[in-house]
Amino acid sequence: MTALSIRSTFDNSSVSEPPSHLPEKEKKFKMVAENVTISYGDFAAVKNITMKFPEKSVTALIGPSGCGKTTFLRCLNRMHDMTKSAKVEGKVMIDDIDLYDKSIDPIYHRRKVGMVFQKPNPFPTMSIYDNVVAGLKLNGVKDKKILDEIVEDSLKMAYLWDEVKDDLKKSAIELSGGQQQRLCIARALAIQPEVLLMDEPASALDPIATQKIEETITELKKEYTIIIVTHNMQQAVRVSDYTGFMYLGDLIEFRETKKLFTDPKNELTAKYVQGQFG
């Protein structure tokens, strides 16, 4: 099946919103991407995607390599500003503010959105403590008491506190890979974001570290809106409430995770979740 025939068979509007039988209180959308197209030169990596992310829930983006899920995730934080060749069209609304509005300063709004990357990337020259509060300290927060509090709080939320509480001055790169990734989660949480973007946060980690990250995500869901890109379908089932399946830059199907995996509406989704390609 080609990308073209997929697009003609699937009705964008009917699947891009979560099902209507959700309880009322969950129907608030924290983030809304409207008609987002991201292109590098002539190549469109993400094609006209509209997606709404319910508040305090986990939304997973799945799909085969190169389908544009990471590219899409990065646009939710205006990370493409760093890549000159990338062009983003459409709207990304966070609490009724369009991130791509000309009058918006992305630096301020990025603080509402935390991001965790595929590979752990703690700042190599900083201690564990300084890594966690890097976003605050370098933005001018000086109060030692507040910083101490936030370090403890963030590390506890990332389930790292017990392992590092006696070694906060140790260099961050002395931690194991899994610990580094949880440190990066703590660092993202320390700026008190409302949305957390995670780009395959466990792909470089062993099963135990992965499990810890997943537990962290489940716990964080109570307070944050989380959007996670993952290659691992079991992981999507385990941690997410909603799942979007992407293929060749298109959003094929976006529904409650259980429904998407047990009763996919689209033939392509069915094939992918059954492991027939990918």
Binding site: M115, F117, K119, G135, L138, N139, R187
Partner: peptide, 17 residues
Amino acid sequence: PMTYREAGTALGLKKWV
């Protein structure tokens, strides 16, 4: 590595910082 700059950007830091 670019990834440190990205991490900083995602933390809402200004480019010169």
